[in-house]
Design a protein around this nucleic acid. Sequence first.
RNA 1: GCCGGGGUGGCGGAAUUGGCAGACGCAGCGGACUUAAAAUCCGCCGGAGUAAUCCUUGUGGGUUCGAGUCCCACCCCCGGCACCA
Length: 739
Amino acid sequence: MQNIENMRRQLRSIGAIYDWNREVITCLPDYYEWTQWFFLKLYQVGLAYRGKAPVNWCPRCQTVLANEQVLAGGFCERCGTAVIRRDLEQWFFRITKYADELMQHNGIDWPERIKIMQRNWVGKSEGTEISFARAQFQDMSDAEKLSRPSFERLHAGVEEKEIRVFTTRPDTIFGVTFMVLAPEHPLVVKLTSPEKKAEVEDYIARSRRLSEIERQSTEREKDGVFIGAYAVNRLNGESVPIWIADYVLMSYGTGAVMGVPAHDERDFAFAKKYHLPIKVVIAPPWWQGEELEAAYTEPGTMVNSGQFNRFPSQQGIEAVSDFLQKKGWGKRAVSYRLRDWLISRQRYWGAPIPIIYCPKCGLVPVPEQDLPVLLPENAEFKPTGESPLKYCEEFVNTTCPRCSSPAKRETDTMDTFMCSSWYFLRYASPHCDTAPFDANKLKYWLPIDLYTGGAEHAVMHLFYARFFIKALRDMGLVDFGEPFSRLFNQGVIIVERQKMSKSRGNVITPDEYVSELGADAVRAYLMFVAPWEQGGEWDDSGISGISRWLNRVWNLMLEPYELNPKAVEAKLGDEKAHRDLLRITHQTIRKVTNDLEKLRFNTMIAALMEFTNYLAKVKEAEVVIDSAWRESIDTLLLLLAPTAPHLAEELWQRTGHDYSIHNQSWPQWDEELAKDEEITLVIQVNGKLRDRITVPVSITEAEAKKLALESQRVKAYLEGKELLKTIYVPGRLVNLVVR
RNA sequence: GCCGGGGUGGCGGAAUUGGCAGACGCAGCGGACUUAAAAUCCGCCGGAGUAAUCCUUGUGGGUUCGAGUCCCACCCCCGGCACCA
């Protein structure tokens, strides 16, 4: 709560404007009650389920983590400790049900790279699932084969008569010379021959001991063990040995692959190591029948493939799949890299999962009217490796809502990303106490027009929130499927080669800068140093420039403007000064408005600085009448208000206006007034700049060319040359091509 | 390895998307004011050259009247994914 207070103070100190009435605090019961309510809704429609799976466990945080929260190389997102794999019974959200939709970003304006990251994270690949017969079951009838359950059922009721693999390259099936199962594959135990049993068990034990980082390292040499059994490639009747190897992942596809060493790099390395045959079935364009030095993974022409010889790979993939499908030996299938979202946490912080375990009724959801399930105040934090809730008797012990017999509460809490998956809905009606949100208010406010946040949330918060909203939409709770219509990533500030962040403790607080130079200077400097989406190394050396600029603005407005009487006499007939001032004012409004909409704050401020410098010259010249002057400085203040709200407000009042500048409407520009009267026309000879001339915008092509040829500087370059061509770009240049 | 995004003065960065490279600012240099300093103001500020002029957007090629911008090859930096069959 102190953190929150400190953040509030800092946000206020830099002049950030929020409607504090709408503040929500996700760790308080009046919020997490509704997080739990959503959990129950997801449970009701089967999107929340409890299951046993190998999960990521952080030994330091003493909790499990979702895949998205494990950093590259297998480190905990919060504390950086290497995670390990554990088989645990945990709660999941069925995010995979939305895999296809999460890859689409229809009708939303998001940075391309975020969309790509999300698509890659889902990792859809279309291929074919192929059944290999076990050697002694190859006589199975077609009818029997067709009735086989698909691979979802494979893991539950182990089938011994076949081995299913997933491949994106069915065109290489005649090149299969071995099979590889993941060590955890349920068939391994059943298939292993008695004489290989010890060796196989030893290998399984060894791969279990490996940390996830070691196991997933691509550097490591692939190894494996022959299990003493064979599988039959139904297309050519060949028997191939079955191996286990930990480069095959149980969690992807069917947990088994066909080994095609000639056309897969991993299989190639494996075959070389264990002297397994390498059979070329896709001919590279240059191929003369020689042995391959490395796996050929590109498309080619099918050879040694029976009836499919001479098919190009692409066609072969289709033809082989069709054939397998017709025979009942396989079917087209889609695999995703994405796994279900593991939401259980063994931390105290987080909303308790509202589930009760009753010895009679089994798993019972907490009835809605009993929410919230409160976190106990008196939980003890012990280094036991288990949630503190587990030892909190008064929390754990309860009665079954159905049969009233003594029962136990679930002690896992929810991933905090669950809280952040819907907080923006709560903003629409933050005090609603009968529902998570008021549906009418939601209609008005949502979806969010512009969401800014860091790119590091691409496959975490931003991904979860999209899933969450889609699930709510399908339950009829909201009428839109995308939470954030436009997404903008602000850059990350780097300090001492590390990202500035709370967890790294290298945060440079705005406080000292604010007290020294003022909030406006700090804000403006952050906007000015770099493109907003870029971030960069923190460097305060340029902040003085901003400070000086704001001081110039101050002096410009407060030192009285006086029209020089002599200048009036001499120049009042000179309307040009006024037209110029008006034009530049309107050009500045246009530039600042457009930049602001695109969140290009750095160039917006550059434009404001240029305008300030120009106004200083105007003031020096003392030739424009007072009303024109006033109008221009008012415009500058209005344009400056979002950047330097305090200064703009102060000057607004000191220049005789009423409170508040922040309630004024944004200045509009007039395209006519913003039009240039004169332009600089560039004159090139053979594409090289030779002269510039100032001409009226209305100049015709003929006039421009005439002026170009008359230029003294240009004439020297045309001497004795033949003019071949003249290029005229209106408003830009004349290019004389000579030889 | 694969997929993104980049490489522009001493520095942060501009450049209407193929048309004046270096806007705006920092740092630096020179000057004014001042007893002096700070602050402020004025001027200069990519490189070479006395100059005219030439060179210059990671490197090398190409397309074009014209390339920082488009195409091909390569080098380097950052981010993401990584035994995903």
